[in-house]
């Protein structure tokens, strides 16, 4: 089944050419020229992935991203002008799952989308699909995290990150490792993606996100999940 993709960009030529190229890669494309249309399209027919340009005429991409996150866990890839601008961190903090920079090519974008849509793959060493960390129950099979009988509202990427850390069973996972397993990046992936996602995860699973008990930082090495 073809994955559906919502293209949000105010530049008609960009939408046209990306539609052509991405359709050729096998995606089903819908378009929105501004933030308002994007949110409407999202409500009407939720896509599998949103490609969101941060420069929009009516409201900035960060606001749109936060609006999307309010009631959807759809993977969002934002399009930024530059790698080392503050936009990247701001966009990730607004809830984006990943980012690409202009000029982007459909083929690279397709690789990013595939990585985001990939489900958590059961590793051969895994003995169970259910991990318990403190008062959290992480059910890999159902892609759910439950606390006191309540399902926590994690995005798909947040869940994948948590699941990878849970699978390590207390061992430290380096940022490179997590970037590769969750986002499909090689050595030169942007480790800020991991850092911001860890912050977002802490807000959702820690009782006191400022002094995390479960999702702890191993200085200079990476992160680990402890009881």
């Amino acid at each position: 089944m073809a994955h559906s993709l919502l293209l949000v960009d105010d530049e008609p030529r960009i939408r046209r050419v990306l539609r052509l190229a991405l359709e050729d890669e096998g995606y089903q494309i819908s378009e929105a020229a501004n933030g308002f249309d994007a949110l409407a399209a999202l409500r009407r027919e939720p896509p599998d992935v949103v490609l969101l340009d941060l420069m929009l005429p009516d409201r900035d991409g960060f606001t749109v991203c936060r609006e999307i996150r309010r009631n959807s866990d759809v993977p969002v890839i934002m399009v930024t002008a530059r790698t080392d601008s503050h936009d990247v961190v701001a966009g990730l903090e607004a809830g984006a799952d990943d980012y690409v920079t202009k000029p982007l090519v459909a083929k690279e974008l397709s690789a990013r989308i595939r990585a985001l849509l990939r489900r958590v793959e059961p590793a051969s060493t895994r003995t169970s699909d259910l991990y318990v960390v403190g008062d959290l129950e992480i059910d890999v099979g159902a892609a759910e995290v439950v606390r006191d009988g309540e399902v926590l509202p994690l995005t798909r990427t947040e869940f994948k990150l948590l699941a990878e850390l849970a699978c390590a069973e207390g061992k430290v996972c380096s940022r490179e490792q997590l970037l590769s397993q969750v986002w499909g990046y090689g050595y030169f992936g942007d480790s800020r993606i991991v850092d911001v996602h860890i912050r977002r995860l802490r807000l959702k699973i820690e009782h006191d996100p400022a002094t995390p008990k479960h999702l702890v930082t191993a200085r200079g090495l990476g992160y680990r999940l402890v009881n």
Binding site: I14, A21, K102, P103, L104, V105, A106
Partner: peptide
């Protein structure tokens, strides 16, 4: 270069399509 990025994106993606 900023200004060039939009036309560049159009050209690159069109070219990729053609080469596919």
């Amino acid at each position: 270069s900023h200004e060039l990025r939009t036309p560049l994106m159009t050209m690159m993606n069109s070219m990729q399509l053609i080469q596919n």
